[in-house]
Amino acid sequence: MIPKLTEKISLWQLFILIYVFEIGSSVVVDIGSDAKQDAWIAILLATGIGAVTIVFYHYLLNKKEGKNLFELFEFCFGKYISKVFTFGYIIYFFYIASRVMRDFGELLVSSIFEKTPIEFISITITLVIIYLLYLGIEVLGRTSEIFLPYVFFFLIMVGLFILFSGEIQFENLQPVLAEGIGPVIKAVFPQLMTFPFGEVVAFMTIIPYVSSFKHAKKVSVVAILFSGLMLTYTTIVLITTLGAEMKARATFPLLSAAREISLLKFIERVDLIVVFVVMFGIIVKVSVYFFAGLKGLEHLFSIPYRAFIFPMGTIIAFISIAISHNFAEHIEEGLVFVPYYLHLPFQYFIPLLLLPFLLWKTRQKNKKVNK
Rank of each mutant, 00 (worst) to 15 (best):
M101K: 02
Y19T: 09
T232C: 12
I121W: 06
V288G: 02
K247D: 01
A292F: 02
F291E: 00
W360E: 14
E298K: 08
H330F: 08
A328E: 12
G88L: 15
N326I: 09
A46R: 03
F15V: 01
E74A: 13
V284H: 01
K4L: 15
G88V: 07
G141D: 06
F291I: 02
F75T: 13
V336R: 13
I267G: 12
F252C: 01
L127V: 11
F56Y: 13
L108Q: 07
G105Y: 07
A202E: 01
F153Y: 10
T235Q: 09
F189K: 03
F252P: 01
P339G: 05
A51W: 08
I316E: 02
F170V: 15
L359Y: 06
L127E: 04
T240C: 13
P345A: 03
I206S: 03
L229C: 09
I129P: 06
G166Y: 04
T362V: 11
Y95L: 12
V139F: 10
A248Q: 13
M204T: 15
F252I: 04
E171H: 09
G293D: 00
T143M: 14
V275L: 03
H325Y: 10
E71M: 05
L263R: 02
F152R: 10
L229Y: 04
I350S: 03
P351C: 05
S144P: 08
I137Q: 02
V286Y: 09
T143K: 11
Y19G: 02
F147V: 15
V219Q: 12
A223E: 04
L359D: 01
S262C: 01
M230V: 14
V28Q: 08
